[in-house]
Every structure is written in structure tokens, then in C-alpha cells.
Design a binder for these strands. Structure first.
Lengths: 339, 339
DNA sequence: ATTAATTACGCAAACGATATCGAATCTGCA
DNA sequence: TGCAGATTCGATATCGTTTGCGTAATTAAT
């Protein structure tokens, strides 16, 4: 197996004890400056790197952060991860990424694996299946720093970073209403996700304010967030088979938006004439779609950054933090041709 | 900090030694079946999980695989990672993902971090800056299993998994020629990447076979693979400022393709009338673009799967493997409206 | 000169799990 | 009864690092 230089190699070469070398490396005041210099220079010369595994075992900080998201192959999450990495890298942390694929079981397995590899903290965006948070609460109580982002839960008292989902869908719905659409549907994510509730609230509020009726049948849930293409087909079918077909849709995720466009193309539905579309999406090429998409863009990169800063704040805090807040970041509605 | 149940807790509770507990847990023949049963049941009851960090330190297998790619926010790589994960998960391995962001320095830092966290093996796709592989060769000689995928190097004798890039760009170029395009350009990745050479070869071969001249000025390299938008703008400007403007382009990456479409839109260039486009891209919605894209799709998911299977084969092999092969997977040309 | 304080370092235990070696108990056989 | 061999388990070293404690050597104070 791959073997590296250890502190023992240094101590042998220099005729010192391992403890002296260790302390010299860490700049302890107990070591004379000459010895320090000797050790430091030799370590530099042979390119010594402390073994993080041994450090972990000793219980010291690890300088690594575990990240769990449902799916990497998703613009929002890959951008968020880039934000996470940008901060982590600057602060000397490494990130370890896992995917839950919207499965509760895989979420638990992966998070436990991260914890047992002794990451210093966890950045969590919940799977759409997750209802029981006891495993996370357990870890949290035992002192594992955790910050939620995007898909959060009230069950855990810690920092949370989200987009202003309610306002975003309020704005989107409002925009459609202003454009003259009357029967606005909402295709959204799994029902128990925090983002789903937040977005639904904004959607309802906009309808209410303009005196439009709220029709339960106009809200379709995709339990796999659009990762399973069929569920979106079913959702669209459900919408379009109603007596009063909707004339516009607010879609709540990247996949849902694109699948809706595909379905509309198959059904020869003209956008925006037959169907207005405003979508939550973080694609960087909304203008290249046919038609160019009116989008709500979430500040994914910034969310990752803010969440990471908060997590590192917890990790590096001397005394336990008890006051937590939820950061809410603004979204951006960009009007193009789809509505 | 987060603390878990150890073998010591079990031994204390059961009045046994840690060695007995350890052996019982691993099913050693030296332990009586009653003791085994006792230990196993108790371990199950209190939900004991061996500490992977301690196992790593002991030098045993870790059941984790390090992955390094240039960019996660890239359809090809995120799909490849899903392929990697699908195999790894089934075989009981966890994956740890890092990004080089096309930087040699970050590649080295991240790979060394992965190695020092004692992953059992490495799945590597090189950054576009990487020329010096000595650090990887070093690890490889010391016994670290390594498999390259997509962006490979001849410098290391190990398994490699690539798409049939030469054939892919040959097919793409050929398709454009058949469609009547005469002056076909090629916007591609960094010059020292293996995929760049392979794709250029196929491009040249197609031109040669049809008796079309090869014009160096028609080949533009993007050293950041399109991550820096300007470099693509420059490439397009370089192409379009020539006396004999190209009438078609073969683009070599997702980003390059989409940036080209954006640029064409700005320049009011009509696709496919003024400019034929065939692009290497793994987007799952090529038909939603305007116009629908003629694409070369790489078998990203399968590449990830194959690479992972090979890596696990090396990891779990009793004796060192000395015979390595390079797997070449077929790509898929799908004709749509852009050419 | 004797004691106290300071400096500079080494010894050994610890983190959690495993493996080597050795020891205790039991069984079978002469 | 005595002894070899099998069976079952424990003590200990180990991985690489940190850390509490001990101690020798030097310096300062009385």
C-alpha cells in the first residue's frame, strides 16, 4: 500500500523523540528555537505531511466537511457545491460529497459514514423521503456541527440557509397573473420537503391576493423531484385531463421544468400562447431554450458559501453555540419569452 | 465531539477482552460459537459500527474510493460520477469526490489529501493543466491502485477507460461534410489533454478522406474547457474574423457548445443555415435547444461504471496486476436540426 | 553551597481495531 | 495418571500522532 513519511522517520533521522518532533512541528513553546528550526527544515525538505487518519483517531480536527445532497447532476446542487468548496478551500477544509438520490436509507448510510470518518461538520440538504430526523438529532446532540441548506427541517435547532422560496413563487405566480393567465398550476417536489411547502405558500398567497381560486387539483407533487421522468408525465397528464385545463404553470425544479417543456413539445402545446411557464431553475443557459425560459434563479453558489461559513463558525467556535438563525437569500426572477 | 460505540464498550459490558470481541465480530474460527453469538447479538443490539478511521490507521481496507474530476457542474462528469457510485454502492464502497477546477495545483493537493485519508484507490480524470504526472506515478509505484477515465495519460501503466473520441469526431465531421458544409472548424479543449488529441485526429482524418484541406486556423483551443466564457468568445471571434469564415463547427464540450450557441445568437448567425453545429455534449435535453442540437453523446455513466469495476478489481486482487488494458466505449451521434 | 525555578526534552499512554503470540482449559489416548 | 494436542481466549504491540508527566541540565535566588 501507499506509504508516506511519518513523524517517526523524522525523529530517527534527527535523533530526537517523536514527541519533540511533534511539538516542534506544532510550534510548542517547550521546544528550543534551534530544534524547532532543525525539525521544520528537515520536514520541509522531505515534504512531510501529517497523517490525517491518525489525527482523526486522536480526536483532533480533521479539516474536512461532509456534504450530502440528493443529486449532484443538478444545476442547483452542483452550483451550491462550488460555493461550498470556494469557502472551504480558502479556510483550509476539504469537502467530501455524498448523494442520497432522494432515498432516506442512503441518506442515513452516507451521513453515518461521513460522521464515522470523523468529518468536522456536516452540510445537509435533506432527501425528499426523509421524515425521521432522529439519527441526525442524535449526532447533533453528541456535538456534531450541522448546517442545513435549501431543504431544511424544523426538527433540528441549528443554522439554516434557504432561498426565499415563498417570495420567489409569489413573484412567479404574480407575474403570470399580470400576464393575464387565469388558471395557474404548480408542479412541485415531494410534499414533505420544506421547499415544497414554502413555494406552495407563496403560490397560494399570490392567488389569494388577486382573488383567484385555489384549486388543489392544480398542484401536482413529484416525489422524486423529477428524477423519474414518468412522474412528471403523470403530473402533466393529471393537469391536462381536467375540464378546466390550466393555462400556465409554475414549476419547482430544473428537471420538472425541462420535462414540462419536453412534454409540451410532444403535446404540441405552444409556449407561451397555450401555456405560460415560469420555472425554478439554475441552468446557465435559459435563453437557449425554445422558447427562452422565464426563470426563478436561486442563489445556489451563495447559499453554499453562507452555509459553509456558518458551519466553520460552529466548528471553530470555542464555546458551544446556542443561538441559531435561519438565513434567507433572495431569488431572481428573469422574464423571458416563456411567460 | 461526536462519539460512537467502540469495541471496548462491548468487551467491558460482556467481560471479555477486546481481542476476543474483535475476533468474534470478524467471525474468527478461534472463538466458540456461544461467545460469537453473545458478542454479535450485543453488538447488533447497541448498533455497533467499526470505526473506519481506526481501520484505516491499521492499514486495512477502507472501502472508499477517491474520485477527482475537473468540474462537477458538468453533465459528463456528474453522469460519470453517478455511474461510479452505482457500482461502488453495490460493492460496498463509498466514494469521495474532489474537483481540480482544471488546476494542476489543486489536482495535486486534492489527490494527496485523498491518498493520505487512505482511500483504497483512485479514479482520475486529469485537469487540463496537468503535464507532470510524477506525483501520481509515485503513488502508483507505492501501490496505490489508480484507474484513469476520459482524460488519461500514457505516462502511467494502468487501466484506462475512454470514449472512442477519434471515431466520434470523425463521425461528426463526416456528417457535416455529407450535409454539404465545406469549411468545418473545431473548437476544442486544452491542447495537452488526451481527449483533445483524439478528437482532433478524428476530425483531421475525416477531412483528409474527403479531400478537404486541413486549416490550422480553423482549430481553436479553450484552455479552460469553456469554464471561462471569454476564451470561447475569443475562439469564435478568431474563427469569424478570417477571410474564409467557417460554415460549420464541431465543438468538443458541453460548455463550448452552449457558449457557441449563445455567441451565434448574439451575432445573429442562423443555425444551421449560416453555421452547422455538431457538439460533444451530455445534456439530457438536446431537443429543447433552439435549434435542437445534433450531438455526440459520450457514455458517461457506463464509463464511470467500467472504471469503477476495474478499480475494484485491482483493489481486491490478491496478487499485483501487471497487465492493463484501455477500454474504449462507443459514442452516439444523434442528428437533430443544428446540422 | 544549597535550593528553587526554568528550560528542553524523553517516556509512555492514549485514540480504536487487529494480529501475533502465548496461556489456560479441556479432550483423548496410552 | 500423565501428556500431547486441540480449543478458546487474553496480553500486548502496532498503525501515526498528541499529550501529561517526569527528569536532567541549566540558571537564578538565597
Amino acid at each position: 500500500m501507499y506509504e508516506a513519511i511519518t513523524i517517526k522517520d523524522i525523529s530517527k533521522a534527527l535523533g530526537l523523540s517523536t514527541s519533540t518532533v511533534s511539538r516542534a512541528l506544532r510550534g510548542s513553546y517547550e521546544i528550543s528555537s534551534e530544534t524547532k528550526k532543525l525539525v521544520l527544515e528537515y520536514a520541509e525538505k522531505i515534504n512531510y505531511r501529517p497523517n490525517p487518519v491518525a489525527l482523526s483517531l486522536k480526536g483532533r480536527r480533521n479539516c474536512s466537511i461532509g456534504v450530502i445532497v440528493s443529486e449532484i447532476a443538478n444545476n442547483f446542487f452542483s452550483q451550491a457545491i462550488n460555493g461550498i468548496e470556494s469557502i472551504a478551500y480558502n479556510r483550509g477544509y476539504h469537502i467530501i460529497i455524498s448523494q442520497s438520490h432522494e432515498s432516506y436509507e442512503r441518506e442515513v448510510v452516507n451521513i453515518q459514514h461521513l460522521a464515522s470518518r470523523s468529518v468536522d461538520g456536516l452540510l445537509v440538504s435533506l432527501s425528499s423521503e426523509t421524515k425521521d430526523l432522529s439519527y441526525l438529532m442524535n449526532m447533533h446532540e453528541k456535538g456534531m456541527p450541522i448546517v442545513f441548506f435549501d431543504r431544511i427541517s424544523e426538527g433540528l435547532n441549528t443554522f439554516k440557509v434557504i432561498a426565499d422560496n415563498a417570495k420567489a413563487s409569489y413573484d412567479a405566480t404574480n407575474h403570470l397573473i399580470k400576464k393575464g393567465y387565469k388558471r395557474i398550476a404548480h408542479i412541485t417536489n415531494a410534499v414533505n420537503l420544506s421547499i415544497t411547502k414554502e413555494r406552495l405558500d407563496g403560490y397560494k398567497k399570490a392567488l389569494e391576493e388577486k382573488g383567484l381560486p385555489y384549486n388543489e387539483k392544480y398542484v401536482q407533487y413529484c416525489n422524486h423531484g423529477g428524477m423519474v421522468a414518468e412522474e412528471i408525465d403523470v403530473a402533466i397528464k393529471n393537469l391536462m385531463s381536467q375540464k378546466q385545463k390550466p393555462d400556465a404553470v409554475v414549476t419547482a425544479s430544473d428537471r420538472i421544468t425541462t420535462c414540462l417543456l419536453s412534454a409540451a413539445k410532444k403535446l404540441k402545446l405552444k409556449i407561451p400562447e397555450n401555456l405560460g411557464v415560469v420555472g425554478f431553475t439554475n441552468t446557465n443557459i435559459p435563453e437557449l431554450f425554445n422558447p427562452p425560459l422565464t426563470t426563478i434563479r436561486q442563489p445556489a453558489f451563495e447559499m453554499g458559501q453562507v452555509a459553509t461559513e456558518l458551519l466553520i463558525k460552529i466548528i471553530e467556535s470555542k464555546r458551544p453555540i446556542t443561538e441559531f438563525e435561519t438565513k434567507i437569500l433572495d431569488t431572481e426572477l428573469t422574464v423571458r419569452e416563456s411567460a
